[in-house]
Amino acid sequence: MSSLQAQISKILTWSCVDGPGNRIVLFLQGCNFNCITCHNPHTIGRCNDCGDCIADCPTDALTLEGGKIRFDPALCTHCDACLVACPINANPMVQTYSVHDILALLGKHKDFVSGITVSGGEATMQLPFIKALFTEMGRDPALAHLTRFIDTNGYLGAAAWTTVLEVTDGVMLDIKAFDRDTHRRLTGRDNARVLDSARMLHTAGKLYELRYLMVPSQTDTAGEIESLMAFTQSLEGPVRVRLNAFRTHGVRGEAAAWPAMEREQVEAAARALAEESTGPVILPALW
């Protein structure tokens, strides 16, 4: 049994928006992108034990012991004041879980779920943990029927993907923008590796869903939508595309003042995509 551990920001035992069916979702802490449109910016950083959050905790759930942040979940009221206080977009409530811990959780909930999704943050930054967890799940007769999904920004390199794909059933991959400058401006990184990952995963039959975030005046332009259509056409065989609409919920910094994406334009883009018949197009469930 693997003793590998992961830094986990949050675990959900009920989610219907992270892949097919109800899924247990692990939000792994830390991200190699720094998206200005991020809805969960507190999952980006790694806690550096500065202690700036301690004074803001109303229930004394956070303390500094031996230079390290100590978090007591029993005292926490989930007010998230510490996330607001954190100067580096990290989360002092992050907990360490072993592969064994997650297998035990899966055992308790296996009757309720279609599978597990590791999300983030950027889940693949803790790839050895994912590989160990997914491998153990496949070996356990009580869990082997559960599907194993990764939700990713696609920045992981091709060689690293190959180490985990054998034990992975599906990947949901976000493309933030097709124009390289736009992508760099929105995420702080180049998009070449993202597009490569999407192509490689699709060829390997593991790309469950391509996700594209429409941000007003940034990634909803005619040129961007045409690039999205051209990209899906360039993939051989159907690909499921989910169009997401930017909204400011949870966003910090300049993007918090940006307008939310209008439904009409998202639906127009969906219609254009659907006409290309490159696969199902999924729209937001809520407006």
């Binding site: 009920w14 909204r247 937001p284």
Partner: peptide, 11 residues
């Protein structure tokens, strides 16, 4: 449901 991951989130 999955408050953090309503459609259009987790970018």
């Amino acid at each position: 449901v999955a408050n953090e991951l309503l459609a259009g989130t987790n970018q």
